[in-house]
Every structure is written in C-alpha cells, then in structure tokens.
C-alpha cells in the first residue's frame, strides 16, 4: 500500500501541493483527477523523489520513500512513467528497455523484454529503431514497458493519454486495465476522465494543490456538480 500523509511539496520557493493525504491499496488503482496545474504531476513527482518535499511523509508497504533519492525509490519498487514520456531518444527501443531493467524489490524478475513485447507488439516490431523516431503512442508504450522492466510494485503514470489520438488512448486503456486486473498497483494522474474511470475505482480530485474529493467513481457520479466544478471549465 502506498500512503501519502500531509504532503506539502513544490519547486524551490513555489509551492504546488499542500497537505495532501490519500492511499493506494495494494493491487488497487487510484486516479488523480483535476485540471492541469492542480498539482497532479507534482504529487506523482513527490512520490518519485523528483521535487522538493517541505512536509509530510510517503510510505510504500511501510518503507518510507520521502527523503530518499529517486534511484532508491525506484529500487524500493516504484515504477515511473513520466509526463512527456521521456524515452531516451538516441537509444533504440531495446536499449530503452535495458535502462529500466532490474529485479523487483523482492528480487523477483517477472518482466523481461519478450514479455513486455507481448504486451506491446507495436514496439516489438520496432525494437532496433531509435526511440526518437517512434510515434507518440509508441513512445508511451515504450515508457510503460521500460517502467515494467524494473518489476515495480506500483506504477506511477503521469498523464498517459496526453497528446494521443482517441484510438491510441483506447488501446493503452486495454493494456493498462489488463495489468491492473493482474494485480499491479496503479497511481495515475489523468485529465481524461474516461481513461481514468476505466483503470481506477478510486479517485482523488485535486484543485489548486489541495484534495477536494476522495472516493469512488460511483460516488462521483452521484455528484455531477463536482465534476463540473473541478474538471470542466
């Protein structure tokens, strides 16, 4: 279980999120919703150790993550699929997978290159192409595959649907929901409500750096005014 308690974080003097608290149960999936700038990305980066944490604590299965270096956090079992993908453009698809390769925190190796290629045949076909030549959707698949190569306990996905055509989002949704069904814990930041609902039962809505709603999607359906207020314009 990932636990975020009283988290206040930002970049230098600029504070982006304040006193956040939520949990992601093991094998569960939580979607962070909210308009851009609401603090979703900062929340994900805080878990990954990539921004300044001023206060609060983040733990994964009892192990404290906050205050550790990003590489230690990754080795503790956190997989990261960043905003903008950040695949290594000069490296081939295979080499990108190599950069993510490591045993899980418990020493287990479940994911290998052939297995992630089964999941994403699109990139298997282009295994020797440099990542810089991939399409947006292929890059996103590669970024997910690269994170899986580290055999994570929890996968952080920052805006996976951003900039992708609906049919590609559909395709990603299928694979990610299959992973979720298999028991991979997911925390995703997403503006696309349809994708978020497909992957997660639980939702945390952020607005100007604060949690304004925590509950299930079903709860949210009963409160359409919340959607209107925090997600729409």
């Amino acid at each position: 279980m990932l636990e975020v308690n009283n988290l206040t974080a930002g970049y230098g003097a600029a504070r982006a999120i304040s006193e956040l608290a939520f949990r992601v149960p093991t094998a569960g999936a939580v979607a962070l919703l909210g308009r851009n700038g609401a603090g979703k990305s900062t929340t994900i980066k805080s878990v990954m150790g990539l921004c300044d944490i001023y206060d609060g604590r983040i733990t994964l299965d009892g192990v404290t993550l906050s205050g550790q270096s990003p590489d230690a956090i990754a080795r503790a079992g956190v997989g990261y699929v960043p905003e903008d993908r950040r695949v290594f453009a000069d490296l081939s698809v295979m080499e990108n997978l190599e950069t993510g390769k490591k045993a899980g925190a418990d020493g287990a190796v479940i994911w290998t290159a052939p297995k992630v290629f089964d999941l994403f045949p699109e990139i298997a076909r282009r295994r020797d192409a440099s990542a810089g030549t991939l399409s947006g959707g292929e890059r996103q698949m590669l970024a997910i595959a690269r994170a899986l190569m580290g055999n994570p306990r929890i996968l952080l996905l920052d805006e996976p649907s951003e900039g992708l055509a609906p049919v590609v989002v559909q395709r990603l949704g299928e694979t990610l929901s299959a992973l979720a069904v298999e028991g991979l814990t997911l925390l995703l930041a997403e503006q696309n409500k349809a994708l978020a609902r497909r992957l997660a039962n639980n939702v945390v809505i952020l607005e100007t750096g604060h949690v304004v709603f925590t509950g299930t999607f079903d709860d949210l359906d009963r409160m359409p005014e919340l959607l209107e207020r925090y997600l729409s314009v």
């Binding site: 308009r35 649907s161 609906p166 997403e190 503006q191 696309n192 409500k193 349809a194 994708l195 959607l227 997600l231 729409s232 314009v233």
Partner: peptide
Amino acid sequence: EIRENTEVKRVYLGDPDA
C-alpha cells in the same frame, strides 16, 4: 460562450459524450 461550448467540454473532461 466558452462555458457552453461542447467542444471545450469534451477536451477538458475527455468524455466523448460530454
């Protein structure tokens, strides 16, 4: 006008039916 614009709603909510 923007509040009522269906195209804008769609891109913000990501719902095809919005």
